[in-house]
Amino acid sequence: MLALDKVGKTYPNGVHALERFSAAIPQGEIVAIIGGSGCGKSTLLRAVAGLDRASTGSIRIDNIDITAPHEKIGIIFQEPRLLPWLSVADNIGFGLSDLPAATRREKVAQALARVGLSDKAKAWPRELSGGQAQRVAIARALVPQPEVLLLDEPFSALDAFTRRDLQDHLLDLWADTRPTLILVTHDVDEAVVLADRVLVMRPRPGRLFAEIQVNLARPRDRASPLFEAVKRRVLTALDRSLDRNVPDSAPAETVGAWW
């Protein structure tokens, strides 16, 4: 269980990025956080990762306070951030340096096979395509088996086809150990495909605006009417969060078996 209690963040330069954000996320849930730019979603994620400290409130995982990076929490960034001087295999094994070499090799080989890059084990990161590099980053974050995996717009730099491919792949990998996934995104499609619950945030200062349950069975059909309906709900919430005029005929309420 990941418990965020009134988390707030004010940067030293006075920017009030996040205000009183609270959420309880049970183990294994997939949560998407979506919102316009400047709504504090990356700030929130960095605080949960322990990379930045929250100014107020608390972040607790299994009743342990998170103030610095923790072994139960892994993170995947927008860029793969592979270490260019390590081979693909060594990059995946980067977080396993405490294990004996043989165990590490075995785990790395399994992870490589799981993301379909066994033939690239000895390649340098520069020899990978964008999608392959991000798959290595996913493997690197998953191989220490974190309880919570944070994803900061992980697929936003990829082309649409590769993105869909990796979204499915991520779900597939998630099913292995079922960690909690917290996904920051600005892609409504991605949020609805992946998440059990979509949290919509509103900017200046960043705070929680709406919460939308996605009770669709997986694998989800991106073209189904139910999928479209949830998507429209999220879009409507997003529009409202940005104080845009929303047409009265917003059809979201009429289809809602998930609200």
Binding site: L51, P69, H70, E71, G74, I75, R81, L83, W85, F94
Partner: peptide
Amino acid sequence: RKIVEVGRTFRLSGPAMIRRILLPAVL
């Protein structure tokens, strides 16, 4: 900074950060 953050998320100690991230990066 982004590469250093990778080291931080894997909780490298100071010496490990120098050996595994900084030294290869400055080579």
